[in-house]
Design a protein around this nucleic acid. Structure first.
Length: 423
RNA sequence: GGAAGGGUGGCAGAGUGGCCGAAUGCACCGGUCUUGAAAACCGGCGAAGGUAAUACUUCCGUGGGUUCAAAUCCCACCCCUUCCGCCA
């Protein structure tokens, strides 16, 4: 959520930043425009209401005092009955305007950070750096490799749940498990994250806290008849661990890693990546989450990124890092750096990790605060990134480790977890 | 799912219509004392809006109602604890 005070004070500046995402965000009738209208209305009503409330409180106190002296107060009580009625009506009106204002604010995305480059879509993203040497020989797509090894079964996935679900068998299932364990061990032991294990079902409040709701309900699986959703990413439960809390500054930064399954309806991505396990309704991910004072966020994002990169490097997977442009970053993010792994069958880089800084946007929405040097509660800054998406890592390992003899060579780091060198 | 009890500030816990944004204790912050620390003593100490600063307003699980006035009374809902049922 954007800051209300800045919204009022720096309306033009903030609007200009938002326009970098898309000029349509500022159009007539947009949440941005409506928010301003409701805010003005809400403030005017509140001013009027508070004067009345003050009067009511004052006179009520006098009535109480008079009664305790044994005096008759029926005259004042009669006059206050009318005030009470007006307070009630005005209060309802004020609440309505306030709620409308809040609803609009929740629909406004985070203004991009100054260091987020201009651009409208992914073609405007800017490469920061590359690592590793991509192979250029002909490699079959991962689904062919997996099926011929008997470790990937897409038909079974369809039978059980429909398209975009898959089944792993034998060494494939073990590889999925090995990757989770390897990644968690790396982050917990080498990078100093505290590992957490969290629910894969959360309520709407948690999803509002991190920004998935109210705007993106269509992307989520909702449990029927309950205020409960399958998580689209571990970011939601892990960040919301601290929802509504005021944290002591000396425990910051808080840094968590955690494995969760992720569930996405993929509404609107029909036809994209329909084959294979690049885009599934259910996938596994190891997530990295930071909570910290805002001034450390930029530096922390670079550290977080390096932790995600460490996984790719340990697995000897070539990748590149991309600065996402203002038109391509997610709703809650102010800055995002994607890691894209080389997929030889497609001869291109594909997203495998997304590392974002949210500024105080999520801290404000989720009510996660810390005490600054003056002891004042302030929203924390949050950061998160995939470290990494497991399914896509498995895909990358199959293709990058594939040999002409049909076998797949496993990276050394994974061999202890797999108990073998080849698939 | 059934029954009973309960949700108050960082924590514990008092408060059953006005003098309550809320006793008290702990924790925390500042000070006195001390070589230093502890103890003791003195003072401070919830959040949000609002203001130049005050004032003022709101918040006692959530939402509604009664009343001049609600933490306190009424209704609905949510959550927690314990017991029973079920269960990995």
């Amino acid at each position: 959520m954007i800051d209300r005070k800045s919204f009022r004070r720096d309306f033009a500046v903030m609007g200009a930043a938002l326009a970098r995402r898309s000029p349509s965000l500022l159009h007539e009738g947009s949440s941005w425009q409506q928010a301003r209208i409701f805010d003005e209305r809400q403030r005017a009503l509140k001013a009027e209401l508070e004067v009345l409330q003050a009067k009511r409180n004052r006179v009520s106190k006098d009535i109480g005092a008079a009664k305790s002296r044994g005096e008759d107060a029926s005259d004042a009580i009669g006059r206050m009955a009318e005030v009470a009625g007006r307070v009630k009506a005005l209060d309802a009106e004020t609440k309505e305007a306030e709620d409308a204002f809040s609803r609009m604010l929740l629909e406004i995305p985070n203004p991009p950070h100054a260091t987020t480059p201009d651009g409208v879509d992914e073609s405007d993203n800017i490469e920061r750096h590359r690592w590793g040497t991509p192979r250029n020989d002909a490699v079959p797509p991962h689904w062919e490799i997996g099926e011929s090894l008997g470790i990937l079964d897409f038909e079974a996935g369809v039978r059980l749940a429909g398209s975009r679900f898959s089944v792993l068998r034998g060494a494939g299932a073990r590889l999925e498990r090995a990757l989770m364990q390897f990644m968690l061990d790396l982050h917990a032991d080498q990078h100093g994250y505290e590992e957490v294990w969290v629910p894969a079902i959360v309520n709407s409040k948690a999803l509002t806290g991190t920004g998935q709701l109210p705007k993106f309900a269509d992307d989520l699986y909702r449990l029927e008849g309950e205020d409960a959703f399958l998580i689209p990413t571990g970011e939601v439960p892990i960040t919301n661990l601290y929802q509504g809390q005021i944290l002591d500054a000396d425990i910051l930064p808080i840094r968590h890693c955690g494995y969760t399954p992720c569930f996405r309806r993929e509404a609107g991505s029909a036809g994209r990546d329909t084959r294979g396990m690049i885009r599934q309704h259910q996938f596994d991910k190891v997530e990295l989450v930071w909570l910290l004072p805002p001034d450390g966020a930029a530096h922390a994002l670079m550290q977080l990124l390096s932790h995600a990169e460490a996984v790719l490097q340990a697995l000897a997977l070539p990748y590149r890092a991309m600065d996402l442009c203002a038109g391509d970053i997610g709703f809650s993010a102010e800055k995002t750096i994607d890691l894209e792994v080389w997929l030889p069958s497609q001869q291109c880089y594909r997203e495998i990790s997304s590392c974002s800084s949210f500024g105080q946007f999520q801290g404000r929405r989720a009510g996660i605060r810390y005490r600054d040097a003056a002891g004042k509660p302030q929203p924390v800054a949050t950061l998160n990134g995939s470290g990494l998406a497991i399914g896509r890592t498995l895909v990358a390992l199959l293709e990058n480790g594939w040999q002409a003899d049909g076998r797949v060579c496993l990276p050394i780091a994974l061999q202890p977890y797999m108990g073998r060198e080849y698939l």
